[in-house]
Design a protein around this nucleic acid. Sequence first.
RNA 1: GCGAGAGUGGCGGAACUGGUAGACGCGCUGGAUUUAGGAUCCAGUGAUGGAGACAUCAUGGGGGUUCGAGUCCCCCCUCUCGCACCA
Length: 814
Amino acid sequence: MTMAWEPYDAKRIEAKWQARWQEQQTNEPDLAGARNPFYTLMMFPYPSAEGLHVGNVYAFTGADIQGRYHRLLGHDVFEPMGFDAFGIHSENYALRINTHPMKLIPKNVANFRRQLRMMGLMLDWSHEVLTPDPKYYKWTQWIFIQLFKHGLAYRKKAPVNWCPKCHTVISNEQVIDGMCERHPGTAVERRHLEQWFFKITAYAQRLLDNLDWIDWSETTTTAQRNWIGRSEGADVDFPLPGREDALRVYTTRPDTLFGATYMVLAPEHPLVAELTSPEQREAVAAYCAAARMMKDADRVDEAREKTGVFLGAYATNPVNDQPIPIWISDYVLIEYGTGAIMAVPAHDQRDYEFASKFGLPIIPVIGPTEGDPPAGEAYVGEGVMINSGSYDGMPSLDCLRKITADLEGRGVGKATVQYRLRDWCISRQRYWGPPIPMIHCAQCGIVPVPEDQLPVLLPELEDFHPNSPGGKPLERYKPFYETTCPQCAGPAHRDADVNDNFLDSAWYFLRYPSTDDDQRPWDPERTRKWLPVDLYVGGNEHAVLHLMYTRFLCMAFKDMGLIDFEEPFKKFRAHGLLIKEGAKMSKTHGNVSNPDEYVEEHGADTLRMYLMFLGPYAEGGDFRDSGIVGIRRFLDRVHRLYGGIPAGGNGGPRHGPLQKRTAIKLHQTIKKVGEDIHAFSYNTAIAALMELLNEMRAAPALDDFARESFVILLAPFAPHEAEELWELLGHDGTIFSARWPDYDPALTIKDEVEIAIQVMGKLRGTVTVGRDTSKDEVQAAALAEESVARHLAEKTIVKVINVPNRLMNFVIKP
RNA sequence: GCGAGAGUGGCGGAACUGGUAGACGCGCUGGAUUUAGGAUCCAGUGAUGGAGACAUCAUGGGGGUUCGAGUCCCCCCUCUCGCACCA
């Protein structure tokens, strides 16, 4: 031994190893020369003024364990970190404390770096990414231009979600129950603005299809499937008497076509004005105006009673030539399908409510196969066709296809697929983000900024308040706003919007390996070597936002020939949420804990292990202070064991060959910890380490393999202490150059097994026999047990169930 | 309403393809050691009855399948998360 043992002092040990890792660049793989690359990614944080909280530490530690484990398996692990410091979070905070965000960032980032180092994460700080750095957002803007050039960025005037507190447009995903995600209690308004959109809908089917093969948490892929919301149905044309054109609707239930008793258009539907009869004009105009002004929150409230107005016009049902009245109502959405529906009140609950209120006919066209249709509501199930002309008597499921085919044959309908997914609104009428790199010219229209002029620098404005007089922040600042057209050199102005913060974070993982390259967003060779990301770990709150946008961009890049893969993350695992005091740990609940105090008291290794011990990583855990001492005691005991300090009365294990039972426990644990890490089952892996420690402490002797293996198994969880003990065992250099121990399968099974003996399914005793003892011998041993024999006395044994090496059950009768 | 997940001791949580429910840890109880300790070590700890060995009851509730159910099936209740008039 080269080093004297001292009592466990987390502070000393952790400072020592953090300094050594930094000095020796232990965590910086050779990106160009690595032979066995493994890219571990964790969702980079927004560097808030409050600093890292325990929830972040939970997320990062779970990812770090994977990185460290893979390193011990022999991979070159790249585990980078960065900061997502653009966006409304930062801007609103800056406004609140009246300080420019640019001034806040260095301090906040420095604090985050300090805390991340403190937690002993295996981060490679030589490849940090900072989204508001012009060296980074230059390429964010470049990406915007590439999408524009490939027809994937376009402008449209659209009803958008406007948060009066954020003073900007927010995405559908950021609207929660009609309220702003960031301002609970603030209703989102509907405004109509010219906005930039990315055509994510063009990739809807591919985004859906790939979910079948990517190795992601099922909770996440399910959320994405629901969000994409593919539905199969038919477009059907309803002729409009006296007009050339027809009213097109989308329906998933062509089998109910004979039951369509009225039509409903969205108030925004373009045909509304043309179809309205003179008598109804006033009422219709009033209804449309009201709908237009209405907040989404109200419009979307399902509990609200249905409203609507008759247009005074009729369409013709293409299957039976019946005239059916056309109404408008805000329960029909202009954004989905064709913005018009055929209403079948007998078989759709919404239509049923509407028809009941306005006295419209309700005609059942499908009868349930058995029983009666429910009274007072729509029957939405399948059944047998009725009131449907020649289709009567057929199963409704068959008619779904048949009626569509018949309509198709007559040229009045066709099978179609709809998606719920909407295009991604990119524009933000704010300050703190990358300016959208577009120029508006009266002569040439919209012209992208030439790529050699990137980045379009965000000017350092004193007044960046979103709603000061004179327009948007960037519009008010004329030296920025006023420019010349790159094509005609005439006067022009810059786009005064900045991009959505989700664009900044949609490609950061591509940048990490190439942060030293100023010529390209990513170095093709490095990218080929390191991407796609091997493992991404993050919260499911990003299941449909960040993770969908990232996948979309990746597909677009692949199609542009910029990269050669279309899914960014081979494996994604969602972690659970930390609960504290009965609520999820978050700033809104005011129950966040700062890791600093726990590290100060117990050390980072203890906090890391404690967080991982709380429960299954995918399900989160209940964070409370009371249990942390258990882990602290565990690490103390580990440390004492390696110092040769007696554990209780036995004087401590000496150096020597293992007893069989200790060897078995050791090999079982090597097997289990590896398997558990693979399954992200950290809590049970730690429990197994505790069991092994208890066994080793009680053992009379331990050999080198046992001592070294235990430290290596501990290393992913408590890296500082593992390094310290590794050194104490006489090794030079980092333990992370060591290899995960192999277990001997023969030593994972015991020679003797305890067999449960049941009588009629109730446990009456146990017998210990050699492994693979025959049924007869087990039975003999069981019958010899007094506690078993007593229950069998004077009974007839009907049957004996034998589960080898586990259990024997006697079935008896009196 | 739809989708996903979950209900197990005082607490956090274990339990492989159905096979000894409660691993591991916290807390608690008793003991050892100590000047003392909230340090360390040992033992015990699901509930009820019993001095006791033992018995009975126990995995949200109710049925069922099975030699055997926390695990499978049906019905119901509760909680968490996500989506929310998507035709």
